[in-house]
Simulated assay, not measured.
Amino acid sequence: MGKATLGLAIVGLAGALFAMRRMFLMAAPSCLAGHWHGCYDTDNGIVFMLVAGLPVAALVVAALSRVPRADAWRKSLAEVGMVYGTVPMVWLTLQPGPGAGVVPGRLSLIPLRDLITMGPLGIGGNLVIFAALGFFAPIRFAALASVPRILALGAGCSVLVEIAQYVFQLDRVSSVDDVLVNAAGAVLAGLASRRWWRRPAAEPADPRLRACAY
């Protein structure tokens, strides 16, 4: 990663933290006290714990990188990034609404109909749900290093989330537009990491060399 890219990432992170300072201040008392209500069952609390846990995630990356294997740092960063960046986002989408368990599951299967009501905040939130997965998965797994496969991965994971929302009656609308935007977010994030994708080893062009490779 170049110095310019790293600098932009730091500036972007600092700007995001500043913009979210109020939501952090609202969630900090409950989260730091270890209370479930007001922390892990709120959007503010989940985002606060995600940011607060970054040093722990960095330590996990450092620990995994000591495991003897090829390209240890790259694999460790990608593995932790996929999990740490995706699980809290999925947890956010599975937060029950006020009518959870009472209101039956609702479906919206007409493409692009719900985009109008999402608004910029809703669209942005849906874009980032599987962004970490789309960014790190092709870095870790050569088999996923293509746009169609990242698209399929993001869409497949999103479909599972929407099914869970419907089956468990979480008082949320299971929408095809959520799947479309989630998958688009995974692809955009994947394209952002394209220069670091893990490529499969190329086979020798000469048949005799290919035979020797085996």
Rank of each mutant, 00 (worst) to 15 (best):
L160N: 09
T117Q: 15
A137Q: 03
L188Y: 04
C31M: 06
G154E: 02
I163S: 02
K3R: 15
D177S: 11
Y166V: 06
A152S: 07
G15P: 11
P68V: 01
V83W: 01
A132F: 15
Y214F: 15
G105S: 05
G12W: 06
S65N: 04
D171E: 09
P111S: 09
W196H: 11
P68E: 03
L32G: 11
G34I: 11
G12S: 12
R194T: 00
Y166D: 02
T86L: 10
V173R: 10
G105I: 07
D178R: 05
L170E: 07
R106T: 10
V187I: 09
A155F: 15
I110V: 14
A131Q: 08
P200D: 07
W197E: 08
L8Q: 06
T5I: 09
A33N: 07
R21F: 15
R140V: 03
D43P: 02
D43L: 11
A186V: 05
S108A: 15
G7Y: 12
W197I: 13
F141A: 04
Q169C: 08
I46A: 00
Y214C: 12
E162F: 12
E79P: 00
D71N: 11
N182W: 15
Y84H: 08
V47M: 07
A143W: 12
A164L: 15
P55C: 01
P55D: 03
A27K: 00
M1W: 06
L153W: 12
W197Q: 02
A63N: 00
T93V: 09
G156F: 05
D71G: 03
I139K: 00
Y84Q: 06
R66H: 04
S30K: 04
V80A: 03
A63R: 01
